[in-house]
């Protein structure tokens, strides 16, 4: 989980075999071999972001590719006139609600999988694996029928439920992998000290699960923030639109206002970019500790 290759080669080498330095020389890669392909790839990654930013902030009629002079007219248009203020609030509410529901349910289920043996455990695991093959796009009709029966069409709760359900299996597996990595002896020590199982969990296990919770929670949030098809199908009133739906509508207009499109894109990107900036350091660790080995 914490393999850090950076520190290794700096070890002083009295124990290194005579051939050691030479072989290490051969293992090193020249700077060119790193920076030429990396630079090209960075260009491919960053130019699209840059393009969006420039179009969002440059004044109407400008053809400059430099983000100067800056104007916030486009943002004002999308935020106030096109309704992105409302879409943003809706997306935020759905995202946070999905995050909380996914994390809490996955935590409970993950603890059961990691710490108990019970009949039906294998079937439960297999069932969760199978759900990964169910195409979300194709569940639109039956889910719509269910939400109509429950009176949840045009309610943001339909999105929260659908998001949570599709996020649960992977989150549960990820969290149970992390709980398995917490030594059970730590919990037992707390039981001996008179803690109940629940208190021991909150006092001992939960603090150690922080990276897992950050990973699962942010996956759920990003996924929900980005979801388009459910929001498009289950919600028809404009006051209930989410950001991706609003963005898709501004794309579908007959004559696209490119400045507004770019500004809407920036609005859609900011929350996920912020979340990503916080979690990206844990991302690789989280993958190796939870998903792959768990």
């Amino acid at each position: 989980m914490t393999v850090q290759t950076a520190a290794r080669p700096r070890l002083p080498g009295p124990l290194t075999a005579p051939g050691g330095t030479k072989s290490r020389e051969r293992m090193r890669v020249s700077r060119w071999q790193i920076w030429v392909p990396l630079g090209l790839y960075l260009l491919f990654t960053l130019v699209p972001f840059y393009w969006m930013l420039v179009f969002a902030v440059r004044p109407r009629g400008s053809t400059s590719l430099l983000p100067w002079p800056i104007t916030f007219d486009n943002f004002e248009t999308v935020w106030n006139e096109l309704g992105f203020a409302v879409f943003f609030r809706n997306s935020l509410m759905v995202g946070v609600a999905s995050l909380v529901m996914t994390t809490v349910i996955a935590l409970a289920g993950g603890y059961a999988l990691a710490r108990y043996d019970f009949r039906g455990k294998k079937a439960f695991m297999l069932g969760m694996l199978c759900t990964q093959f169910i195409p979300g796009a194709m569940m639109l009709i039956p889910l719509f029928e269910i939400f109509r029966t429950l009176g949840l069409v045009n309610s943001l709760w339909s999105l929260v439920i659908a998001e949570t359900v599709f996020q649960l299996p992977l989150s549960l597996i990820l969290i149970s992998g992390f709980i398995r990595n917490v030594p059970v002896e730590l919990e037992q020590a707390a039981w001996v000290d008179g803690c109940g199982r629940l208190r021991a969990f909150f006092a001992v296990v939960l603090p150690l699960l922080r990276p897992a919770l950050v990973a699962v929670g942010s996956f759920a949030f990003i996924h929900s923030w980005n979801n388009f098809l459910f929001a498009l199908m289950f919600v028809n009133e404009q006051e209930k639109f989410t950001v991706p739906v609003g963005l898709a509508y501004s794309l579908g207009e007959f004559s696209v206002d490119f400045g507004a499109l770019a500004a809407g894109g920036v609005v859609a990107a900011v929350p996920v970019v912020l979340v990503f900036a916080v979690i990206q350091r844990y991302l690789v660790q989280g993958m190796s500790a939870g998903a792959v080995k768990g």
Binding site: T45, P48, W225, N227, F228, A248, L251, L261, A262, Q280
Partner: peptide, 20 residues
């Protein structure tokens, strides 16, 4: 961080950017 960043971007936003 930079090369991983498009991972978090949605399909609709990708469309918006690439349409531009």
């Amino acid at each position: 961080a930079l090369v991983f960043s498009p991972w978090a971007v949605s399909g609709v936003l990708t469309t918006g950017i690439w349409v531009l």
